[in-house]
Computed example of a mutant assay.
Amino acid sequence: MFALLSRIYHISNPPKIKNDDACKPLNFGCLGAAKITPGALVNPSHTHPEVVLYAVAARDLKRAETYAREHGFQKSFGGETGYQDLIDDPNVDVVYNPLPNGLHFEWTMKALKGGKHVLLEKPATNTAAEVAAIYALAARKNLVVLEAFHYRFHPAIQRVKAILDSGELGPIKTISASLTAPRRHSARGRHTLELRPWRRIQKGKTGYTVNVLRYLASSNPTAVITAKAVPYSSRPEHKQVDKMFWATFALENDIIGELHSNLEEPKLFGFIPRVPKLSATVECAGGTVKIFNFLIPHYYHSITISPTGKSRRVERAYSFNGAAKGEDWWTTYRYQLEAFVDKVQGRNPQTWIEPEDTVANMKSVEEIYAKVNSISAFFITY
């Protein structure tokens, strides 16, 4: 309990450190005044000596100015040209793109054309083809792009992967992943298709579960066996906005994968929020391993290893042993920022998500929705 409280305190009150003059700090420019930015960039930046919160842009100048004051950005841009003005600022080294999903491709390409590295929130784009175009342009311009699957940089999920890769439990047979959240918001604003085209709401969360399946299995789906999506409501503007999703995969090496995502879990008795399900379970020939809370393990997580015929054990991994940097209270986003800055600065990051990985993940998500659409078309036809 003391360790948990200590982590919560340091996550909420990260110690601020001065910029390191030995290595040129990177000026970050943020597109949009998004709610994710304080946790994903602002707080982690306070403990990174090579990160400067340089500028933020918003459609409304007053909102940009207020956001800059509240979160410590040095400059603000606003109005119809605000995003482009930020990109055109020669002092911006990195663009952080947490815009609505439907704007990711457009503004990431513009940032790359402007010579900026990009930290890109997930899902990277609408299609695998758009992802490939982003990385092709980045390669031509020698720039770094990272899709922000932040959980991949934390010691917890890497410990699970190490257990599986060690062969202790034998070959993988099945993997299941769940990501649910209690109902919090109305459909207005958050559940609009215009800014999040083609099932954009669930595509981001489905991407998490697909990503963890692929990562732990060290393989890609070969076929989508089943897929089902439940729309947010029957209203026309919500018919392609999912609130629940299920799918099963056949993966390489004869592995079966199952995923479930639900962003609108109803409250118990109408008023008690349900505990989110953020877990992944891997069944192997010689036992199972389960991680509770793979998505935000910095607050609390558990890794339960159950070898067949042997005693069960529980592990936790909040920091790396050995040479890798990190503190027990570092969030997934702080580990991610460390890796991203290392890559931009020409150092070798502790771990990295390669372009091929991002393209493969989006391709798998596309195949899920193709299956959903084919099933829907069948029932409509017959």
Score class of each variant (00 low, 15 high):
Tyr369Pro: 03
Glu80Tyr: 01
Val52His: 04
Arg188Val: 11
Ala370Phe: 08
Ile380His: 04
Thr81Lys: 01
Thr288Ser: 09
Lys75Thr: 13
Tyr67Pro: 13
Glu338Asp: 15
Arg63Thr: 04
Lys75Ala: 14
Lys16Leu: 05
Glu356Lys: 13
Tyr382Ala: 10
Ile36Leu: 08
His191Phe: 08
Val359Asn: 10
Ala217Met: 11
Arg152Phe: 03
Ile201Leu: 04
Asp20Glu: 05
Glu264Asp: 03
Ile36Asp: 02
Leu4Trp: 12
Glu168Lys: 14
Ala280Tyr: 00
Glu147Pro: 11
Leu53Asp: 06
Ser364His: 06
Ala148Arg: 07
Phe153Lys: 03
Pro44Tyr: 07
Gln202Val: 09
Gly204Glu: 15
Gly79Val: 01
Lys18Leu: 10
Ala139His: 12
Leu112Thr: 02
Arg196Leu: 11
Ser176Glu: 15
Asn43Tyr: 15
Thr351Tyr: 01
Thr331Met: 05
Leu268Phe: 13
Tyr382Pro: 08
Ala360Ser: 14
Gly309Ala: 09
Pro49Val: 07
Thr47Ile: 14
Ala360His: 11
Pro14Tyr: 08
Val282Arg: 08
Ser76Glu: 08
Asn91Ile: 01
Ile353Lys: 00
Lys75Val: 13
Thr66Ala: 15
Ser376Pro: 05
Arg313Phe: 06
Tyr67Gln: 14
Val42Trp: 11
Ala22Cys: 03
Ser45Pro: 12
Ser306Thr: 01
Leu5Glu: 13
Asn19Trp: 08
Asn348Trp: 12
Ala177Asp: 07
Asn361Asp: 06
Thr304Phe: 07
Thr226Asp: 10
Phe2Ser: 08
Thr248Tyr: 04
Lys18Gly: 09
Tyr335Ile: 03
Val210Ile: 15
